[in-house]
Write a protein that binds this DNA or RNA. Structure first.
Length: 538
DNA sequence: ATCGACAATATGTCACCTGG
DNA sequence: CCAGGTGACATATTGTCGAT
């Protein structure tokens, strides 16, 4: 039954491309009024010939209408004649169409053709990825933070990065009572993961790099709460000298007893090396745009490849999409995610009783892939039935030369510099009433308020580009505004006062390094807010 | 069963660049 | 100089959920 379904979808797919080739001819001649009525009629006939061949049942009425009395030879002849009528179409396009048709004829077993190609591709992927890990899971231990500080984990993440296959996942588990604030720990680690590497060769960025620098300078110069200075200017240059990258934030799960948090990150590293076409396995491929920041996509330019769209552009894909699409021909029982696991991780909150490791393995790996566990207190034997190569590490050679690496991150450096440049506030507003309801710009108000007149502040701040009233050019400018506001609040609130700040992550374009859809992602507004506010003293 | 919301992915197309 | 290849970006389609 399943095989039949796959077969049907393959045949439909194959026919669609041929069908669409003919459609494209139609589109082409539609506006060419010089074609005679006869020539147009011939093209019509050719069109329905194709339709008839591929979709006998569906198009039967058309078949009888157009082809009842015409022989195969006649059809061939007219087809060639139709091709000739498209005299304005470049020869290249014609040959591409002919190639497609010849190729179609030579394939007798369509299903087998696809399976063969997919197996070739799957073996190629396996060969590429065999020496590295497909999933890394780090369990954050309180005793290690106590002995070495958070730097221990910054260092570890850095060391493990090169061993992880590109586009694969790093999962960080927090399930202890830490001696420092857990949310600050999660925030710092997630901010570090997004920014600890730097890339200078990304073309779309290089093109607008100077403009980005200037825009940020202009913006800060015109900000009435900032004293623009040389140091800030240098930090802007430093910030825009490269793209900060590392991992791509996917999600942060929390258990329903709020004891366990699971941070899921995906490695996306700039890699221009050629990926074979997942359809024809040709290495004759061109580039295409980027689907995500730093994630290259390709286009097959093999004339014989069947996967052409109606404008005869080739199959477009990334390493990851190609891997996933071909995997469907080579699935084992343990590659299927059990329904209950699939459901339980759809939401950000999961049941504390679930076997987290089993879930993660099913969700983020295929069979025979390599999984590195770090400090997971489990018995690996238990997971043998999942048919993955799992190994558990408990320690690595601690190398302290990267100490304080967090404060070397460009994003942290620039924010420290911004904080230093914020103007001193005034003290010329004393609240005399017990209750004051004030309608004002909160930054302006806090700027002129006298100190120590309140000890709690509660806000649901604007979320970056979530509403019409909360638009910023990019996320850096958003955080600068939020930090200025929080700085004045910090100055004015009583010592040991509380600031309640309601924030969460959001899907938006950060517009930091490029200004297009490729920077649309889940943005960690919460982690960045926590980290930046802690720089202020919170 | 159907629908709206939303995210992910596939496909369409503008316009720049390049090489003959 | 200009066709056409293709990088970048836009738009369409698909898939999934919960609500009804």
């Amino acid at each position: 039954m399943v095989i039949e379904k796959i077969k049907k979808s393959i045949i439909l797919e194959l026919n669609k491309s041929l069908d669409d080739v003919i459609r494209s001819i139609f589109k082409e001649i539609k506006n060419k009024n010089y074609l005679t009525v006869e020539k147009k009629f011939i093209i019509n006939e050719v069109y329905y010939k194709f339709i008839h061949k591929q979709y006998t049942e569906q198009y039967e009425p058309f078949y009888y209408l157009f082809w009842e009395k015409i022989s195969e030879e006649e059809i061939e002849k007219r087809y060639k004649s139709a091709l000739n009528t498209i005299s304005n179409k470049p020869t290249l396009i014609k040959s591409k169409i002919e190639n497609l048709i010849n190729n179609k004829k030579s394939i007798t077993n369509i299903k087998q053709y696809y399976i063969d190609k997919a197996i070739l591709f799957n073996n190629y992927v396996k060969e590429q990825e065999k020496d590295k890990e497909h999933l890394q899971i780090i369990n954050i231990k309180n005793d290690k933070i106590k002995s070495f500080g958070i730097d221990y984990y910054f260092n570890l993440i850095n060391c493990l990065y090169d061993r992880l296959n590109n586009y694969c996942h790093l999962v960080i588990v927090f399930n202890e009572d830490y001696y420092i604030n857990k949310w600050e720990l999660i925030s710092k680690i997630s901010v570090f993961c997004e920014n600890f590497k730097s890339e200078i060769n990304f073309k779309p960025f290089i093109k607008i790099q100077e403009k980005l620098e200037q825009d940020l300078q202009e913006n800060l110069k015109s900000n009435k709460y900032i004293n623009f200075n040389k140091d800030l200017q240098n930090e802007i240059l430093n910030f825009y000298s490269a793209i900060s990258y590392g991992f791509y934030f996917k999600d942060l799960f929390i258990s329903n007893d709020s004891k366990t948090n699971i941070l899921v990150l995906q490695k996306i590293q700039y890699d221009e090396s050629i990926v074979f076409c997942p359809n024809c396995f040709s290495d004759k491929v061109g580039g295409n745009s980027y689907t995500k920041l730093l994630q290259k996509s390709f286009e097959c330019s093999n004339d014989n490849c069947i996967a052409k769209n109606r404008d005869l552009r080739g199959k477009r894909y990334t390493f990851l999409s190609a891997k996933i699409q071909n995997k469907k021909f080579d699935l084992k029982e343990k590659d299927y995610v059990p329904k209950e696991i699939y459901k339980s991780f759809r939401r950000d909150i999961f049941d504390k009783k679930v076997d987290i490791l089993e879930h993660l393995i099913y969700l983020y790996t295929f069979t025979n892939e390599n999984i590195l566990l770090y400090d997971m207190d489990i018995n690996i034997e238990k997971y043998n039935t999942l048919e993955r190569n799992i190994y558990n590490y408990e320690s690595y050679l601690y190398d302290d030369k990267n100490i304080n690496s967090f404060f070397k991150l460009p994003i942290i450096r620039i924010m420290i510099s911004v904080i230093k440049s914020i103007k001193e506030s005034k003290e010329d507003y004393i609240v005399t009433d017990d209750i004051l309801i004030k309608n004002a710009n909160s930054t302006d108000f806090l700027y002129s308020l006298n100190k120590n007149q309140f000890n709690i502040a509660i806000t649901s701040p604007p979320y970056y580009n979530a509403r019409d009233y909360s638009k910023w050019e990019n996320m850096i400018l958003y955080f600068i505004d939020m930090v200025i506001n929080a700085k004045y609040l910090y100055d004015k609130i009583e010592d040991n006062g509380y600031y309640v700040y309601n924030i969460s992550d959001i899907v938006a374009m950060d517009n930091i390094y490029v200004k297009s859809k490729m920077c649309k992602k889940r943005q960690m507004l919460s982690s960045y807010s926590v980290v930046f506010f802690s720089l202020l003293g919170f």
